[in-house]
Amino acid sequence: MEAYYNCLRCKNRRVRILTTDGRQHEGVITDVDRYNVYLRTGSNGPVQTSAFFGYPYAADNILTLSLFTLLAIALI
């Protein structure tokens, strides 16, 4: 639950997220739900996900990350 509240506090702000697999992602948090954080990135590639549930209105530059994989989040 701590990851959920941390992401809520950073909503609409630019962040760097570190996941448990060692990957780093940068972008703006556009939304958070009980299971996922949705990060608008600068890439124009296909939607990437580390979650089981899809984002209902996904765009090409939204990265869906499972809250269970988040290790750290920092404002940048």
Results as ranks from 00 to 15, higher is better:
Tyr38Trp: 10
Ala72Phe: 14
Leu71Phe: 12
Leu8His: 01
Ser43Met: 04
Glu2Ile: 08
Glu2Cys: 07
Tyr5Leu: 11
Ala58Leu: 11
Arg40Pro: 01
Ala72Cys: 15
Gly27Ser: 05
Asn12Cys: 04
Tyr35Gln: 12
Tyr55Glu: 15
Gly42Val: 10
Glu26Trp: 02
Pro56Leu: 09
Leu8Asn: 03
Asp21Ile: 02
Leu75Met: 14
Thr41Ser: 09
Arg9Leu: 08
Leu67Glu: 03
Val32His: 00
Tyr4Met: 07
Phe53Val: 04
Leu39Thr: 00
Thr41Asp: 07
Asn12Gln: 10
Ala74Val: 15
Val28Tyr: 03
Asn61His: 13
Phe52Cys: 11
Arg23Leu: 07
Asp31Ile: 00
Ala74Cys: 14
Phe52Ser: 14
Tyr35Pro: 02
Thr69Glu: 12
Phe53Glu: 06
Ser43Ala: 09
Asn44Tyr: 02
Arg13Trp: 00
Leu67Tyr: 02
Ile76Arg: 15
Ala58Thr: 04
Ala72Thr: 15
Cys7Lys: 06
Arg34Ile: 00
Ala51Val: 12
Gln24Thr: 03
Tyr5Ala: 06
Asn44Leu: 05
Thr69His: 12
Ile76His: 14
Met1Asn: 08
Thr49Ile: 12
Tyr38His: 06
Ile73Gln: 08
Asn61Tyr: 06
Asp60Asn: 13
Gly27Phe: 00
Arg34His: 02
Asn6Asp: 13
Gln24Lys: 05
Gln48Ala: 08
Asn12Ser: 09
Arg13Thr: 03
Leu75Lys: 10
Leu75Ser: 13
Leu67Cys: 06
Pro46Asp: 14
Ser50Phe: 05
Tyr4Trp: 04
Thr19Cys: 06
Pro56Met: 06
Ala59Asp: 13
Tyr38Val: 06
Leu18Gly: 07
Asn36Met: 03
Asp21Pro: 05
Ile76Glu: 09
Leu65Trp: 04
Leu65Ile: 12
Gly54Trp: 05
Asn44His: 04
Leu18Trp: 05
Cys10Arg: 11
Tyr35Lys: 11
Ser66Ala: 15
Phe52Ile: 13
Leu71Gln: 15
Lys11Tyr: 06
Asp33Tyr: 00
Lys11His: 10
Leu71Ile: 07
Val47Trp: 03
Leu67His: 04
Pro46Lys: 11
Leu65Asn: 05
Phe68Ile: 13
Gly54Pro: 11
Thr30Asp: 01
Cys7Met: 14
Gly54Glu: 10
